[in-house]
Amino acid sequence: MASEALSSPLDAVAAPPRRRFPTLRRLLRHKLFLVGAFLFSIVLVAALFADLLIQVDPNRISMRHKFRPPGSEWIFGTDNFGRSQWSRVVKGAQLSLAIGFGVVLLNALFGTLLGALAGYFRALDNLLMRIMDAFMAFPVILLAIGITAALGPGSINAVIALAAVYTPRTARIVRASVLVVREQAYVEAARAMGASNLRILLRHVLPNCTAPLIVQLTFIFAYSVLSEAVLSFLGLGAAPPTPTWGNIIAEGRLYIREAPWITLIPGLALAMTVLGLNLLGDGLRDVLDPRLKVQQ
């Protein structure tokens, strides 16, 4: 019928004018992304310049000054040992972000590796995915608790445990993207031209999986910071007196009636970090991966 003859002159659409950095522009127009960036950068600056921001050693005990409420002398008040809450919370930010970053790094590495292997080599897919399923059958925190309980408490072990818990989730997402990309015409073309599997994976498949990966890793960062706090709240993170947000809250809990700020402030810092990262993740998802769009 005539439809095909008609469609050629009629369906042509004028190409929109190309601008440079379109993704960045769209991110900068995304209000909640900017709010997230703002919140997160506060924590990031605190972590990066912790040593400049702290006048008092976070572990200096001064019983004369214990339970001072937040005010002009002690910005965030003092705890039951008269230690500066400001110093401890800022130091905690450093550790929290370092742990979150460590988990993200390990996730990016092993998640991509496992996801790419499973998605690209069908023979491995079933076995790898069943193993991932088994890891994901455990509730996140419970498995992380099990692993840190076995390995022993400590920051490094917390990173290992959280990486082990979140990697299967990242791998699944990479795998799903690889499955889509490997069927694309340009991958077929590369294969037809005799490109090796490794080359196809590195040059064609993986670069096209970065968008969902970046979104996922932003959320993993948020979850890791949150989960690390849970672990150290339970005594599985860095051992006291090293301050972490989780163990400050755990200690402050005992004095919650007379000195609620000990608990309140690290919780707010934690919430701000996680909220900031969640907003960044939402924004990145809206812009980079519109298929998953959750409208703000």
Partner: peptide
């Protein structure tokens, strides 16, 4: 233009006419 871009079985015209350009934004 629309009618000319229809294939006409009775004409020996080889190519279909096409309306140049596209719908304005």
């Amino acid at each position: 233009g629309l009618l000319e871009s229809l294939p006409d079985p009775e004409s020996d015209r080889e190519r279909l006419q096409v309306i140049p350009g596209s719908v304005p934004q």
